[in-house]
Amino acid sequence: MMYINNFIFAFICTIGFAILFNVPKTSLIKSGFGGALGWTVFTLFNYYFDSIVMATFIASLIIALIGEVFAILEKRPLTVYIIPGIVPLVPGFGLYYTMLSILERDYDLAISYGSESLLIAISIAGALTIVLSLNSYRKQRKKI
């Protein structure tokens, strides 16, 4: 039941961000689905493997793959589906606590939060890079 609630709340959250980013109305549901599925995958992997970085990488990979499929089917830019879907995974809490720890002069905790946030950001970028590279390879093979 917890995963269904997570899916619903992430769906609503992703649609909210999609509206903020002026995603076309016809793409809102698909964008929300991608973000909700990504967040659900994130919570599943984080629970079972207890690694927030790996869970973020897998969830970003799923969001990028789904966004790629929707972009091809709907003939829209990939960013319409990926950007709102990735927003729930961005490590805002980690960056906030990093800055708070620096202000409180607790540098060990700041390094811990900061390094985790950096690894999460790198895992998001890595997953997106992999999927975009696969798409580029697919387009090159199609031309041949």
Results as ranks from 00 to 15, higher is better:
Y3K: 09
N6S: 02
F9Q: 04
F9Y: 13
A10H: 12
A10Y: 12
I12R: 12
C13W: 06
C13H: 05
T14R: 13
G16Q: 01
G16I: 08
A18V: 03
K25N: 12
I29R: 07
K30G: 10
K30D: 10
S31E: 07
G32T: 13
G35C: 08
A36F: 11
A36D: 15
T40V: 14
V41F: 14
T43N: 13
T43Y: 12
F45G: 03
N46R: 11
I52N: 08
V53M: 09
M54P: 02
M54I: 15
T56P: 08
A59D: 09
L61Q: 08
A64R: 11
A64C: 15
A64F: 11
L65M: 14
G67A: 12
E68H: 12
A71G: 06
L73K: 15
T79H: 10
I82T: 15
I83W: 07
P84S: 06
F93N: 11
L100M: 05
L100A: 03
S101W: 04
S101M: 04
R105H: 14
D106G: 00
D106F: 01
Y107N: 04
D108S: 09
A110E: 11
I111L: 13
Y113G: 00
G114N: 02
S117D: 02
L118C: 07
L119Y: 06
A127V: 04
A127D: 05
L128R: 04
I130M: 02
I130T: 10
L134P: 07
S136W: 03
Y137C: 04
R138P: 00
R138Y: 13
K139A: 09
Q140W: 14
K142Y: 06
